[in-house]
């Protein structure tokens, strides 16, 4: 059974058609790049998978089921926003994740945070935005989920942080799982992608293996994307 399957999926916001006729299948064990410029529908698709919004037409299925309690158990989601309760300490947020997610590995998270010089007694209130983002990444990657969804994980971070993020993603995901990385900063991450999905104006323009695409076009994914969408 496929991990994620979208069937004739449409989403309108009022009169605006944000997603049109999405029909894609994402199997297990792949790192997939969801690539598109801002406003292309990437975040909307991700929200649909995460049961944060409902389809206008069609369906999205996670392991054959509609999004709900069961799909949330196996999806580890990193949104663009800081979603942590600022009044909590690191130890409290670790307890929170451990309470709600049976696949959360507290010790792993503590180890990863220590490498970043973050202690369990630190308060989220006192952290910079960049540090909070790293904490969120650590929390998300410390789960043994079937599907990781990272929405713009490297947007607006310095190169060192970016390398750390990519490294964390590569060394910590579980092989049976898939990762969907949504971004518009393609050249920074294209090397770690198995497959790429180009989305533009709410439509899937392309869904191909990264290396196959490179062989065919003799260009980088970033170059292919720029040409296609003449940014």
């Amino acid at each position: 059974m496929e991990l994620v399957k979208c069937n004739k999926l449409y989403k309108d916001y009022g009169f605006e058609k944000v997603l049109k006729d999405i029909n894609i299948t994402i199997p297990k064990g792949r790192i997939v790049g969801l690539l598109g410029s801002n406003g292309s529908g990437k975040t909307t698709l991700i929200k649909l998978i995460n049961d944060l919004i409902t389809p206008t037409k069609g369906e999205v299925l996670i392991n054959g089921e509609k999004p709900g309690v069961n799909s949330k158990k196996i999806i580890s989601y990193l949104p663009e926003r800081t979603y942590l309760n600022r009044d909590m300490k690191v130890s409290e947020i670790l307890e929170y994740f451990n309470d709600f997610y049976s696949d959360f590995d507290t010790n792993k998270a503590i180890k990863l945070l220590k490498k970043l010089n973050i202690n369990t007694t630190d308060k989220l209130k006192t952290m910079s935005k960049g540090t909070k983002e790293k904490v969120q990444l650590v929390l998300v990657m410390s789960r043994k989920a079937d599907l990781y969804i990272l929405d713009e994980p490297i947007g607006g971070v310095d190169p060192a942080a970016r390398d750390y993020i990519l490294d964390t993603i590569l060394t910590n995901f579980n092989k049976e799982a898939s990762i969907i990385i949504s971004t518009h900063l393609i050249s920074d991450i294209e090397r770690i992608l198995d497959d790429v999905i180009f989305i533009s104006n709410g439509e899937i323009v392309l869904y191909e293996e990264a290396d196959k695409l490179r062989k065919k076009e003799k260009k980088s994914i970033d170059a292919i994307f720029r040409e296609m969408f003449k940014c």
Partner: peptide, 17 residues
């Protein structure tokens, strides 16, 4: 595979291939 992928900063599947 895992270590090589991490060193090269590429996808483990790519190293596998």
């Amino acid at each position: 595979v895992r270590n090589l992928a991490s060193d090269f900063k590429v996808n483990p599947n790519t190293v596998q291939r």
